[in-house]
Write a protein that binds this DNA or RNA. Structure first.
Ligand SMILES: [Mn+2]
Ligand SMILES: [Mn+2]
Ligand SMILES: [Zn+2]
Ligand SMILES: [Zn+2]
Lengths: 148, 148
DNA sequence: AAATAAATTGCAATCGAGTTGCATTTTATA
DNA sequence: TATAAAATGCAACTCGATTGCAATTTATTT
C-alpha cells in the first residue's frame, strides 16, 4: 500500500493550491509525500529537519491549509488524535486498519464493504472488531439555510 | 433510521453483561435506548435527570464499560470527540453521515460501499465530500507478540 | 532595489474531551 | 447485619489542538 514511485511534486502541488512557497510548507509536504503511511502531527514534526525547528502550531496550521486544499486527508483515530496522508491522484480514498493494541494505522486496498471481512483477511489483520463507514459532507438542512 | 419500537430492556441488558444495576447505569442506558441518534457524553449528561447530578467522570466510566461489553459503540467525529449509540441486535453496525456545517451525525442504512455515493443521495445528504471506511481490530504483529 | 501590504510564523496561553488517583459511598454476598 | 467488592464524586491532570498577538517572511508595487 505504499506509493513512493512517481508521486506528487512539492512545488507544483503548492502552486496549484494557490499556497505560497514557504520553507515550512515545503518541509511538511516533502515529509507527507515521502511517508509510507498515515502520520500524526508529532510524527511530521519529528521528520522535518531539526535545523528548521518548526513550531507545532505551524505544523497544525499547515496541515489545516493542506486539508482545506485537498492536498492531504485527515484520519481520526480511536485515541482522539488525527493522522494525515496524501490525498492526491496517486493515493485515492481507501479503508484503513487501526490496531487497537499497537495503535498503528495501516492502509487497506479499496474494497466492496460487504466483502470487507473476508477481503481484509490477507492483510496485516489478525482480527476485525468493527468496520465503520464514515461519510462526511453537508446535509440538506444546512444547504437550505445557506450556511455554506 | 430511528428505532424506538421494540428496543432493548435496561435491566436485562445490564444483567446479561454482568454489570451491577446502579442508578447511574440505569439512567445512562435509558437515555441511550431512547435516543434517536448518536449522542455525545455531554448530550447524555444533559438528558439524565438533573436531580441525579451525575458526575462527568461517571458518565465516561459507564460509557467505557458499556463499550467494552458491546452494549454501545463509539463513533469518532472529525471534531475530536466521540458519539455513542446502541450496539444491540436492533441496531446493527451501519454508516453514518457527519455534516461538517451543523456538526450533526445521522445514521445511514447499511449499503454496498461502491454504491454509497448514489445510495446516500436520498437521505439528508446534500453533498458528500468523503466516504471513509475505518476498520478496527488487532493486527497480526500484535497477535504474534502476545500483546493480547 | 526599496517600499509597502499581505501572509506566515513563533510563543505563550488557553481550550476541551477525556483520564487518573484517592477518599467516600453504594452494591452484592455471606 | 457484617464484610468485601464495586461504583462514584471530586480535584487535578493529560494532551492534542486552538487562539491572540507580536514579529518575521513573502508577495506585490513603486
Ligand atoms: Mn491510507
Ligand atoms: Mn447510527
Ligand atoms: Zn498491532
Ligand atoms: Zn448540517
Amino acid at each position: 500500500m505504499s506509493l513512493k514511485r512517481e508521486h506528487c511534486n512539492v512545488e507544483g502541488t503548492l502552486r496549484e493550491a494557490g499556497l505560497s512557497q514557504t520553507a515550512r510548507r515545503v518541509a511538511v509536504l516533502t515529509v507527507m509525500i515521502q511517508a509510507d503511511g498515515p502520520l500524526s502531527a508529532g510524527d511530521i514534526l519529528k521528520r522535518t529537519d531539526p535545523e528548521q525547528k518548526i513550531n507545532k502550531v505551524t505544523i497544525y496550521r499547515i496541515l489545516s491549509s493542506f486539508r482545506e486544499n485537498r492536498i492531504i486527508r485527515e484520519l481520526p483515530t480511536d485515541q482522539g488524535m488525527n493522522l494525515y496522508e496524501m490525498s492526491c491522484r496517486h493515493n485515492p480514498s481507501h479503508p484503513h486498519f487501526y490496531c487497537k493494541t499497537c495503535r498503528t494505522m495501516s492502509c487497506l486496498p479499496p474494497v466492496n464493504l460487504s466483502q470487507a471481512q473476508e477481503s481484509f483477511a490477507g492483510q496485516n489483520v489478525f482480527r476485525i472488531d468493527d468496520v465503520h463507514v464514515h461519510v462526511t459532507g453537508v446535509c440538506r438542512q444546512c444547504h437550505r439555510q445557506d450556511k455554506i
